[in-house]
């Protein structure tokens, strides 16, 4: 069968110990049975391993950091589009999504680059700081959460929340605090790295279970695969995991995707308590770094996203194999300094 040739740009090439989803997304795309996909990698730093993975990433361009804003990003993409015909762009970082959502219509209209992102309103609804309202609106249990800007607010929260409590950054990082001293330390650590606000959350005891899912933006969940981490790094990232057959968890996840009319990939993080109750801890607005497991189980979510971005109708996946495991590994790439020089000085390779 002749595969249709297209070009997809993807960010998240930081395939490190706390990996971005870019490389797993690209692996899924490269395994498409109907599309022959050329990959344009979009990087932020010169040592992102994906830049040097020639078998997966055909060409690389550096992007300005998200803090530079959407106008600078658009200008850079305009240059990239003058060099490459990009059909679809998949942003894979939480922190960059705001900019891409803002310019998604311009990308389509001016540069003919398709994306498949939620609207700003739906994106904002699932922000960590809005989790309580989100849970109520979409009928899913969530732990009590508060957004704070001053360390003294932790004292006030001690009236309703007990230790241990979870101290979280706006985008990343979460620490379990057993005392006020620990909580205040984590508060400062988080604001130094991620800025304000800081989220203080009730600690729910149980087993962490996660779902990678994709919605069509019209109220249909196209795919969902549940996973439990089997081995985690010191940063809490999955180094190994196994796909689960948990109908209730999938039902809850589908309900969230369908009712919120989520458009694109996402990750739902839950705690399953001893009483078999599920608490949604977070909804991450992009594919997780373990999304390649979904492909291994029979649901190629990145491919489905690209097809929907191209305006094609994708039928929802109805099942997947449980008991499939992923085991991450590290691998040293040997790279000549000329290649590093190329990306460092020219901003592309």
């Amino acid at each position: 069968m002749n595969k249709r040739k297209i070009t997809v740009a993807a960010t998240g090439l930081n395939n490190i110990d706390s990996p971005g989803p870019g490389i797993p997304v690209i692996r899924g795309l490269k395994e498409s049975e109907t599309l022959d996909i050329r990959i344009v990698g979009l990087s932020y730093e010169t040592l992102e391993p994906g830049i040097y993975m020639h078998d997966l990433v055909d060409k690389v361009y550096q992007l300005p950091l998200p803090t530079a804003g959407s106008a600078v990003l658009k200008e850079r993409l305009r240059y990239i589009a003058s060099q490459e015909k990009i059909d679809v762009l998949i942003p894979n970082f939480d922190a960059e999504l705001h900019n891409f959502i803002k310019i998604q219509d311009d990308l389509k209209n001016e540069l003919n680059i398709a994306t498949f992102l939620p609207s700003q309103a739906i994106f904002d609804e699932r922000q960590k700081s809005e989790l309580g309202k989100f849970g109520e609106k979409y009928g899913v249990k969530v732990p009590e959460s508060h957004m704070i800007n001053q360390v003294t607010e932790i004292r006030k929260l001690e009236e309703s929340l007990h230790y241990p409590m979870v101290i979280k950054g706006r985008y990343y990082d979460a620490y379990i605090a057993l005392t006020y001293e620990q909580a205040s330390n984590y508060f400062y650590k988080i604001i130094a790295k991620w800025g304000y606000p800081v989220i203080v959350q009730e600690f729910v005891t149980g087993t962490e279970v996660n779902v990678t899912a994709i919605g069509d933006g019209k109220g249909t969940c196209i795919g969902a695969v549940a996973m439990r981490k089997l081995y985690i790094t010191d940063k809490g990232k999955a180094w190994s995991g196994i796909s689960l057959e948990d109908d209730e968890l999938l039902d809850i996840s589908k309900r969230v995707i369908e009712n919120s009319k989520w458009r694109g990939g996402c990750e739902l993080e839950f705690i399953k308590t001893k009483d078999d109750e599920y608490y949604l801890l977070e909804m991450n607005p992009r594919f997780p770094a373990w999304v390649y497991l979904a492909n291994g189980c029979g649901q190629n979510h990145p491919e489905a996203l690209v097809k929907m971005a191209l305006g094609e109708e994708v039928k929802p996946f109805t099942n997947y194999q449980s008991g499939k495991m992923f085991i991450r590994y590290s691998y040293d790439l040997i790279v000549d300094i000329s290649e590093f020089q190329q990306i460092s000085t020219m901003g592309e390779r």
Binding site: R228, L230, G241, E245, D246, S322, G323
Partner: peptide
């Protein structure tokens, strides 16, 4: 339901992993 038991005594619970 769905608990897998192999002949050599390996058991997998797909609900919990």
């Amino acid at each position: 339901k769905n608990i897998a038991i192999s002949e050599n005594g390996f058991i997998f619970n797909p609900l919990t992993g």
